[in-house]
Simulated scan of single mutants.
Amino acid sequence: RFYSIERPRKSKKLPEVLSIMEVQSLLAEINNIKHRCIVGLLYSSGLRRSEVLALRPEDIDSKRMLVRVNQGKGKKDRYTILSATLLKELRNYYKRYQPRTFLFESPNGKAYSPTSVVNIVSRAALRAGIKRRVTSYMLRHSFATHLLDKGTDLRKIQVLLGHNSSKTTEIYTHVAENSFRDIDDLLS
């Protein structure tokens, strides 16, 4: 007798994305090398906050220019790309801080706090003059969207993000600029 009751529709929101200029200005506002490396990995590798905080020094593969994500969401291992620019920063960071267990450690040697990452991103966005609320997940969305804008194949983006289904990754086609470039202006 409950079969006739309709379920409410789940809302489908588009991901919020920063422009490349906004990401650059956000990174420029971060002076602390550890913080810059954290935000750099969130954006340039498309990592989730929890994945960045779980990284160990040995997960950075500088020979293959890859970042290994161990037991990410869904308990899956995967590789994603490592920026050459960020690798230089990571090397400087490593020499300075010499992390033992986790790549990013708190002063007591434990994994860095998720709340600290939230504060790093929001404060940098504020200093960069970005008016809207910026989250670490927006950097992941921006990673996928900017790759799509540059012509990267959707399947490759799916692998980098660790999505099981291509449907999950396809959401970025709705916000990518190149999705709208070839459409004629009706008023011109």
Rank of each mutant, 00 (worst) to 15 (best):
R49P: 00
S50P: 00
S50Y: 07
S50N: 09
E51H: 02
E51I: 03
E51T: 06
L53W: 04
A54P: 00
L55P: 04
L55E: 03
L55Y: 12
L55V: 03
R56G: 00
R56D: 12
P57D: 01
P57K: 04
P57R: 05
P57T: 02
E58L: 04
E58Q: 13
E58C: 03
E58Y: 10
D59Y: 11
D59Q: 06
I60V: 15
D61M: 02
D61L: 10
D61S: 01
D61W: 10
K63Y: 13
R64K: 08
M65Y: 07
L66E: 14
L66T: 05
L66G: 00
V67G: 07
V67S: 05
V67A: 06
V67H: 04
R68P: 00
V69E: 08
N70G: 02
N70R: 14
Q71Y: 13
G72I: 05
G72F: 04
G72K: 05
K73Y: 07
K73F: 10
K73P: 02
G74F: 09
G74Q: 10
K75V: 04
K75G: 12
D77Q: 07
D77K: 01
D77S: 11
R78W: 01
Y79W: 13
Y79K: 06
Y79M: 13
T80M: 01
T80E: 12
T80A: 02
I81A: 12
I81L: 15
L82S: 05
L82A: 06
L82E: 08
S83I: 05
S83E: 13
S83V: 04
A84M: 03
T85M: 09
T85N: 12
L86E: 09
L86D: 11
L87C: 11
L87E: 14
K88L: 12
K88G: 09
L90P: 04
L90Y: 02
L90M: 01
L90E: 06
R91P: 00
N92V: 04
Y94V: 11
K95N: 15
Y97L: 10
Y97E: 15
Q98R: 15
Q98G: 09
P99L: 05
R100S: 12
R100M: 10
R100L: 13
T101C: 08
F102H: 12
F102L: 01
F102C: 02
L103M: 15
F104N: 06
E105W: 09
E105D: 14
E105N: 09
S106Y: 04
S106D: 12
S106L: 08
N108W: 09
N108Y: 13
G109Y: 05
G109W: 06
K110C: 09
K110R: 15
K110E: 15
A111N: 03
Y112A: 09
Y112H: 06
Y112D: 06
Y112C: 05
Y112I: 05
